[in-house]
Amino acid sequence: MRQARAADTIIGLAFVALGSGIIFVASGFRTLPGMVVGSGLFPTVTGAAMILFGLVMALEAARMARRFDPPGDSRATHEVGSDTPTEDTPPLFYRYTIAVTLALSALIVAMPVIGFLATGFAFTVFAVKLGGGSWIGAILFSAIAVVSLYFVFTQGLRVPLPRGPF
């Protein structure tokens, strides 16, 4: 519970920081000759609103934390039938999320170099294994999925997926 409030305060402050950053960068945009409005106006408005509502959110969370009572109004309704995480869920960065994120990052780097077939295959095998599949199943499934996707996209839909050096 206390953790959740702290998270809200942090996210609120993160928005304040983002808003300030936007305003700072936007102040460098030039206005073209003869124009009433420049490229920087809208980003500045967006940034200012982010600061305002980020502060509202952070202060609200801090106030709630001080009062130490659960906010009843907006939360009670949507816990029914929604799997929005509630206070008793495991931590945000679980083994699975971290593994998937890292695997995707690796794929982004590797795919232009060694092509879709190889990278896609390795990634899919990893993803199936991560979800608890068997080795044989993972390899068979990945081979079929990757090769058929490759052909549907390159031949049928004319999307040139990275070929790699092969």
């Binding site: 899919t124 608890g132 599949g133 990945s142």
Partner: peptide, 25 residues
Amino acid sequence: SYLDAAILLFCIVGSYSINNTMFGV
């Protein structure tokens, strides 16, 4: 485990093909 892997694969190919770059991914 297979369904999730397949969805991930679709996510990759789908976001790649919008502009044919890894940037989409």
